[in-house]
Every structure is written in structure tokens, then in C-alpha cells.
Design a protein around this nucleic acid. Structure first.
Length: 292
DNA sequence: TGCCAGGCCGAAA
DNA sequence: TTTCGGCATGGC
């Protein structure tokens, strides 16, 4: 189990005893599109209908602004993946793939990544938007949709941000309004997802209770959701750590290090976490090559 | 300016 | 069953 400790400090919560977690990596590894980094290294974004700001003054310590110990235990601990024992997960992964130099290196480079557990609907919708798109633009579209269809979030009487829109509010907005958020060909997919979830045709709570393959099949009933979008949703929104999204970056990694007869089962029950290490690693290598 | 992006759909072979 | 063009848009 995770053994983090937290204490209330005025309006903030200080969490200590953290390992294998860096806010810079966790929020910059393409799993979450609602947080931005500040120049001081802190991150600020929206989750659970409120604005959340996190600082990391020490490697093993984070400070979460304007929250309570109760909210941390109830919501944020799991949201940030701090309820999992990453020492044990990484040990198990390393044992299962003991001669795998690529994974070993990726685990080193991305040692601060934790898989978050975000809102299932928001994650599903975000990854529908992500298809054939780049991360800055995905963030922009999600921001626009939140501002236009989401509930405003107030602080001291002022609107400070907007929550991610509910399925019903997207249905109410209609396909043309969604298209106007620069969603392009994805607008009709977003509407189809919103309609199926709002009507109960797709029940996200039931999806969460299914095994990963069945859950993927269920999400793929939505137009515009294929195996990759389903896998990302399941990994980052439903807590399915064995979901293994294969996108252009991971395809490159697999071709480079693993060959044609590769199966995600090779990585074991935490294949999704291994995938995220490799995804981050490949992008890291690519960005270094572009600099030099 | 052109390539590419956390892909998927639908038609054709 | 597999292959492939098309899709909206803007970051780089």
C-alpha cells in the first residue's frame, strides 16, 4: 500500500513520503489535458469541479492549495495515483521484463510518472478529441468546450475556470456548437458519445466494473471510439492498468525494440503503466534529437 | 510551406 | 479481412 502522510496547513494540504512521483512528468505525459505548468514548476488545473493547484517543493513532498485532508483522502489521492505502491509495481514490472533494456531505460527516464484516475466521461471525451490531433490543440479544444458548455467555477464571487461539460450539456449544445469549438470531424463523435452516455445506453459505471476487453468493446460502440481511444480512456479514466493504448509513438517503440509478434501481455498486469513509460521515453528521445 | 498529430470511418479490393 | 483515402485544424 501507499504510505504517504498528509497534514493540513492553513488552506493547504502538505503530502509527504511520496516516491516515484513528479508533477512535471505526471501532468506532462499526455494523459491529462486540463492542467498547465507555471514557471515555478507548479501545476494548476480543474478537477472535481474546482481549481486545483499543486506545488512540489521537495522530491518527496507536494503541497495542494485550497484543499483539505478529507478531500485529499477522498478524491485527490486516487486522482493523482498516490494510492498505489509504485515501488512494488515497478519492482514487479522489472522482474517480469528483467532483460528488457528499453523498458529499464524508460522507467528511469519517466520515474516520476504516475497514471492518474480522472473522471471517466471527461477522459473518454478528451481522447475522442485527441485523435489525429496534437496535445496543445487538444488542450485548447477542451478549454473552449468547457468555457462554452461547462459550469462556471467561482472563487470569491469571480469566475476562475469552467468545469468539463456533462454529457447532457453537450447534447443540449448540439453538433454545430461542438463543431464551432474547432473539433472538426470529431464533432459528430463527441455528440454520439454524449448521447449514448446521457441516455444510459452506455453506462460508464458498468464499464468500470467490466474486465478490460469487455469494457473496450463497450466503449467501441461509440462512433469515433476505436481500440486506441478506448484503451486511453480505460487506462487514465477507469483505472484499468492493463489497458495498452497503441498510438504512433508506441508503434515506433514496439517496432524499434520489440518486433512483430509482440503482445501487451508481455508487460504483465501493469502493461498500461509500462506503455506510458515507453510513450514518454520515445517522445523524450525525439525531443532531444530535435534539439541537437 | 508542408508534415504531422495519443485515429477512426467507410468504401473498395 | 485487409488496405487506404479522407477528415478539420493548427503546432512546429
Amino acid at each position: 500500500m501507499s504510505d504517504v502522510m498528509c497534514i493540513q496547513n492553513g488552506n493547504d494540504v502538505i503530502v509527504t513520503g511520496i516516491n516515484n512521483f513528479m508533477i512535471s512528468q505526471t501532468f506532462d505525459c499526455g494523459q491529462c489535458f486540463r492542467f498547465d505548468s507555471a514557471s515555478d514548476g507548479s501545476v494548476r488545473g480543474v478537477a472535481f469541479g474546482r481549481v486545483i493547484e499543486i506545488l512540489q517543493p521537495e522530491e518527496d513532498t507536494i503541497v495542494i492549495k485550497n484543499t483539505t485532508v478529507s478531500d485529499f483522502d477522498r478524491l485527490l489521492k486516487s486522482y493523482l495515483g498516490l494510492d498505489e505502491d509504485y515501488c512494488e509495481i515497478r519492482r514487479e514490472m522489472a522482474d517480469a521484463c528483467s532483460a528488457d533494456r528499453a523498458l529499464e531505460e524508460a522507467m528511469k527516464v519517466g520515474c516520476g510518472i504516475r497514471i492518474m484516475k480522472q473522471d471517466p466521461w471527461e477522459t473518454l471525451c478528451s481522447f475522442i478529441i485527441s485523435q489525429n490531433n496534437n496535445i496543445p490543440r487538444i488542450k485548447g479544444i477542451i478549454k473552449t468546450m468547457s468555457e462554452r458548455f461547462g459550469k462556471p467555477i467561482y472563487h470569491e464571487g469571480e469566475i476562475v475556470a469552467y468545469d468539463f461539460p456533462t454529457p447532457q450539456s453537450i447534447c443540449d449544445a448540439g453538433v454545430e456548437s461542438v463543431f464551432a469549438c474547432k473539433t472538426g470531424f470529431r464533432a459528430k463523435y463527441i455528440i454520439d458519445a454524449a448521447q449514448k452516455v446521457a441516455s444510459g445506453e452506455i453506462d460508464l459505471e458498468k464499464v468500470a466494473a467490466m474486465d478490460t476487453d469487455a469494457a473496450s468493446d463497450e466503449l467501441c460502440k461509440i462512433k469515433g471510439v476505436g481500440k486506441k481511444v478506448a484503451a486511453c480512456s480505460l487506462l487514465f479514466g477507469f483505472g484499468k492498468k492493463d489497458a495498452f493504448p497503441i498510438d504512433v509513438w508506441v508503434k515506433r517503440v514496439l517496432a524499434k525494440y520489440y518486433g512483430e509478434d509482440f503482445s501487451p501481455e508481455y508487460f504483465g498486469r501493469y502493461a498500461g503503466i509500462a506503455q506510458q513509460y515507453l510513450f514518454y521515453y520515445e517522445r523524450y528521445i525525439s525531443s532531444r534529437e530535435n534539439v541537437s
